[in-house]
């Protein structure tokens, strides 16, 4: 399966505020690419551009899939999800008044995923046994860590080919962040999932990164071609460690 997501020269913003100034990144099949940057540098906006939730004013977002090229800027969010691009939104956006199981069922809204609903549900419960215990509970009553697991599981219910994960560490205790990142690694290694993850927790993010980008004020300031590369970079030291 050939798969490649290419973001080329994207500019985007909200009204008069421009959040992205010509961002270009690429993700290939089976890769885990991290997008590093502190709050307010455009990570989430870039993710939303891929999902069609924010429209770029310039540049292109294309998805090559099995020899076909799709221009994501021309598609609606549901069409993009239908192609197999799925996002775990920031801040654990769940359906708090629905049960865990209802949340998961909604993940399988796209027609292709509905057909494999039973299998995917079993898979999610096997991957996240904790959710099995909680299946009849309201999602809003789960702990922060469990909610993060549920958002991940819900995204998996769409049978994604590319998974975008926006700041999985936000609002979680260090132990739960480690646990979440371990889960993402497990998914990626076992199912060769292609992942684009936005994260500000540098130390956690590079544990699973194949490569990465550093985004500062809406511009890609550094491109690291390997995990070591990212770890040794001076800009990152400056941004994260203040030295």
């Amino acid at each position: 399966m050939a798969l490649r997501l290419t973001i080329d020269g994207v500019e985007a913003g909200y009204g008069a505020v421009r959040a992205l100034h010509g961002v270009s990144i690429g993700i290939g099949h089976g890769e885990t690419v991290v997008l590093l940057g502190a709050n307010g540098n455009g990570k989430s906006t870039l993710m939303k551009c891929v999902m069609g939730m924010v429209r770029p004013t310039r540049g292109s977002v294309t998805l090559e899939l099995d020899g076909q090229t799709h221009d994501l800027t021309q598609l609606s969010t549901e069409q993009i999800v239908n192609l197999g691009v799925s996002m775990v939104p920031e801040g654990r956006r769940l359906f708090p008044k629905l049960t865990v199981e209802e949340n998961l069922l909604l993940g399988a809204y796209r027609p292709a995923a509905r057909a494999a609903l039973a299998r995917n549900l079993a898979f999610c419960y096997a991957t996240f046994p904790r959710l099995t215990e909680r299946r009849r509970q309201l999602a809003g009553s789960l702990s922060g860590g469990e909610q993060q697991m549920l958002t991940l599981a819900r995204a998996l219910m769409t049978e994604p080919k590319i998974l975008l994960i926006d700041e999985p560490s936000v609002g979680l205790s260090p132990l739960l962040v480690t646990h979440t990142i371990d889960k993402i690694r497990e998914l990626k290694e076992r199912y060769r999932l292609t992942v684009l993850m936005a994260e500000q927790n540098f130390n956690q993010a590079i544990r699973i990164a194949d490569r990465g980008y550093v985004i500062v004020h809406g511009r890609i300031e550094y491109e690291g071609s390997s995990r070591e590369d990212l770890g040794n970079n001076e800009l990152i030291h400056k941004l994260y460690l203040g030295i």
Partner: peptide, 21 residues
């Protein structure tokens, strides 16, 4: 099911591929 998702959190509904519009 989709309408219920819209009622609860419209943004999350969109991410899940619910054709909200």
């Amino acid at each position: 099911r989709g309408l219920q998702a819209i009622r609860d959190t419209e943004e999350a509904a969109e991410c899940s591929g619910v054709p909200t519009l």
